[in-house]
């Protein structure tokens, strides 16, 4: 098994696990973590793509690496926003769930 296929499968597993958790878990914090898991899978796939593109005598295709950095920043920012909203929700209601009370 080539290294690209191995990492590709890992990324598929990460995305699958994350999607499963995002859909099945009702707690928002778990959903946020699941989103980060999917994100890791996608960023790993960027790595695989960069590795595959390294045929022309370079150590790796630099474009996916540049994209991953932007992607990481965006994922970090979205996680921060989500956690901030969740904390505020907890302060307001004393509970951190999305279920309505009625």
């Amino acid at each position: 098994m080539s290294i690209a296929i191995l990492y590709g499968l890992c990324s598929a597993v990460l995305v699958g696990l994350g999607l499963f958790a995002l859909i099945t878990h009702p707690q928002p914090l778990r959903k946020i973590l699941a989103f980060n898991l999917i994100g890791s899978g996608v960023f790993l796939l960027f790595g695989v793509v960069a590795h595959n593109g390294a045929a022309a005598g370079f150590g790796g295709d630099p474009v996916p690496q540049a994209l991953v950095i932007t992607g990481l920043v965006v994922a970090f920012a979205s996680t921060a926003l989500a956690v901030a909203l969740l904390l505020r929700l907890f302060q307001e209601t004393g509970r951190a769930t999305l279920q309505s009370d009625d």
Partner: peptide, 26 residues
């Protein structure tokens, strides 16, 4: 706040799926 959080969670799922498709294209 609840509505905003639910919106954000849907939007995050959407954008990460979009990004996955984009990396496949690349």
């Amino acid at each position: 706040i609840k509505a905003a959080l639910r919106y954000l969670l849907f939007a995050l799922l959407g954008s990460i799926l979009y990004l996955l498709g984009a990396v496949l294209f690349y």
